[in-house]
Simulated scan of single mutants.
Amino acid sequence: MQARVFGRTGRRVGEIGFGAWAIGAAWGEVDDTESVAALHAALDAGLDFIDTADVYGDGHSERLIARVLKERGGQRPFVATKAGRRLPQQTVEGYSADNLEGWIDRSLRNLETDCLDLVQLHCPPTDAYYHPELFERMERLVERGKLRNYGVSVERVEEALKAIEYPGVASVQIIYNMFRLRPAELFFREAKRREVAVIARVPLASGLLSGKFGRDTKFAADDHRQFNRHGEAFDVGETFSGVPYEVGLAAVEKLRPLVPEGATLAQLALRWILMDEAVTVVIPGARNVAQALGNIAAAALPALPQATMDAVARVYEADIRPHVHQRW
């Protein structure tokens, strides 16, 4: 797996990381034994970037990661977490100095470390990006040694562009996949110019781009692909990238012929993301060993031909763009 420089931090990380939302909660039944095995397998294969959050399973994801790293010993991978979604309601006032420090202290305990590699503000309200004092509070926490770097996880391109105006923002996590092309239009170029790391999340559009779903697929009641289908619990863009389920299924069928021999649609989707050099790391989720190793194997695929890139763009323009492009 190739490594890419994580923005101004200078640290190099493998281009495929481990998204740890699914091992926490909100993706149906979770088996801790399989989750632990998946993490071990990924780290054995050379993966060195893990992304989690304090609300994934109310800290369960963070604690599982700490357990695995304790079992392994040795050099720790880069572990990024997030803070802010513990608020009962998203308000700028909720991102007070006391709240931020409290959330970060909790993550320090959960991850069993004395300093966090990266803390990302977890999709705060858009207005928060226009409050410099919030970012100054993160600076103070860096100075006090509670975290090495801070960044943001955003819903909208507008938020990403505003965030990188703050010189201390080391990274931006944003949804980018075959069903979400807008970040590459302007934001990626600006991020690269400012040496801001880009973490591409929801790379498989909540599994739609795995090609494994159909009209009759049933999701568990505690799976966000069931309970947040229309944005009932949080931003609908986090579920299937905001694409109506049936529309996504139809688009997937147009993408299937593009899969290289010996690869899967999911691997094609991951390799497609890595074609943009502005992306630092992509973070697909994995709940078992096969998924974890399959994700990593995508990095070994050869560069995609221009014909494939053009074909993906045509599917997006015809089927997906009207549903998502101007919303996020």
Score class of each variant (00 low, 15 high):
A170M: 06
G94D: 10
P124N: 04
T126F: 15
G151R: 03
L100S: 01
P124R: 06
F179C: 01
G168D: 00
A45S: 06
V36I: 15
F49D: 00
Q89K: 12
R156I: 02
E159T: 00
I104E: 10
L141R: 11
V154E: 11
R144T: 03
S35E: 13
D105Y: 14
D48V: 02
N110G: 08
R63P: 12
G59C: 01
R72V: 07
Q89W: 13
E159K: 10
K146T: 08
L43N: 08
F179T: 02
A160I: 06
E165N: 09
P88Q: 09
A170R: 05
I104T: 02
L161R: 04
Y150M: 00
D44R: 14
L121N: 06
K70C: 04
A163S: 06
M178W: 10
H60Q: 14
Q120W: 14
D114F: 13
V169E: 03
E155N: 12
H122L: 12
Y166E: 04
D54P: 03
K82E: 07
K146M: 07
A80M: 08
L161K: 03
L69T: 04
E158T: 06
A41V: 05
L111R: 05
R85P: 05
R144Y: 14
R67C: 09
N149G: 00
V157F: 12
G74R: 14
V119F: 14
A160M: 10
I175S: 02
V92P: 13
Y56W: 13
D58V: 12
A170I: 05
L64R: 13
T33G: 04
L100C: 12
R76C: 06
Q173F: 07
P132R: 01
G59V: 03
R140D: 09
F135I: 01
E159I: 01
R180V: 08
E159R: 04
L69H: 15
R109G: 11
A160P: 11
E101S: 12
A38Q: 10
S96K: 15
L87Y: 01
R106E: 06
S96H: 13
P124K: 04
P77C: 00
G151P: 00
D32Y: 15
A53D: 07
D127I: 14
L121F: 10
H131P: 08
A128R: 09
R106D: 03
R180W: 09
S35V: 07
P125A: 06
E139F: 02
N110M: 08
T81M: 09
G151E: 01
I164Q: 02
R67A: 08
T113G: 07
S107F: 15
H60C: 13
L121P: 05
K82W: 14
L161W: 02
H122N: 13
R63W: 15
E143M: 12
L147M: 15
R106A: 09
R148E: 03
T91K: 13
H131Q: 10
G73E: 04
G74D: 08
T113P: 15
Y166P: 02
L69G: 06
E165L: 12
T52M: 07
H122S: 10
I175Q: 06
V119T: 04
E139C: 03
A45N: 04
S153I: 05
V36A: 01
E62K: 07
I164M: 10
E143I: 11
F49C: 03
A45W: 13
P167A: 09
H131D: 04
L147G: 05
G59T: 01
